[in-house]
Simulated assay, not measured.
Amino acid sequence: MTDNPVQRRPGGRTARNREKVLRATAELLLREGYEALTIARVAAAAQVADTTVYRHWPSKAHLVLDALSEMARSENPFPDTGTLEGDLRALLRQIVALLERPEVQRVVRTVVSLSGDDAEVSRAKDVFWEERFSGAADLVQRAIARGELPVGTDPYELIEDLSSLAYFRLLVTGRPLDDRVVERSLALVLNRQVSVPGPGGVSSAGIDT
């Protein structure tokens, strides 16, 4: 299996160049948008050769998705408040705060619209979303250990349920991303988890289903 460019984490000078390239990519992307971004402009802004960029990212899509993964890790980390409700509320507030920024909205719409006909781009998108949701596993395992979630809860589905309303409003209806979105989404997720059937057809709240 070939090494996926968006998953590499090199060290030394290569790591420093990688950091500069991703920072330059994020800045250009948020300021000017996807269409205006080019490998040559990124290389110039990062003060590296074009070949340095292409050595690690075979296309603009790969580069952008990797830059967005880094931005998500730094600006939208998975919290640890000590409770499931606190973790989910803090996480969704971070998501909403990011989605309220016009430049982030533009980038999210671009990521969603990237062509699915290119196998490499599709894989890069898969890796982006996998990395974005990977931190949910620890959040869910902590909640299971505290008895707040049933064993077997799917972390990916939990975060999908939590964030889907915010993304639906951004991408479909255009309705406000406000505190009501956070509290409504949180209530829907927590109520759903309470009613999830456990072993023997009994919900986690102990109600026959």
Rank of each mutant, 00 (worst) to 15 (best):
R106V: 01
E120A: 06
P10L: 01
V48D: 06
L188Q: 12
V6Q: 12
R31A: 15
G147N: 06
L186C: 10
G12C: 10
E27A: 15
V96F: 09
R8W: 08
L162N: 05
F78D: 02
F168G: 07
W57N: 04
E19M: 06
G198D: 11
S185H: 09
D179E: 15
D161G: 07
M71K: 11
P5K: 07
I39L: 14
V189S: 08
V111Y: 04
D118Y: 11
G12D: 10
L98P: 02
T83C: 00
P150G: 13
L68N: 13
A36M: 13
L28N: 10
S113Y: 04
E85P: 03
L171E: 00
F128V: 06
E85C: 02
A24M: 10
L177H: 03
V64T: 01
P176T: 00
P150H: 11
S69Q: 15
D179V: 04
E27K: 15
M1L: 12
E148N: 09
Y156L: 13
L162S: 04
T81K: 04
D50I: 09
S195V: 12
D87T: 01
L92R: 05
I159W: 08
T173F: 10
D3C: 12
S185E: 00
V182S: 06
E100Y: 03
Q105C: 07
V48S: 01
A61I: 00
R101F: 04
V48K: 08
Y34A: 06
G86L: 00
V96R: 11
T14P: 05
S185G: 09
V111F: 01
A49Q: 15
T38H: 07
R101V: 02
Q47I: 04
A45T: 14
P77S: 06
R31T: 13
R142I: 05
H56M: 14
G12P: 08
T110L: 03
K125T: 03
R146D: 09
P197V: 00
E27P: 08
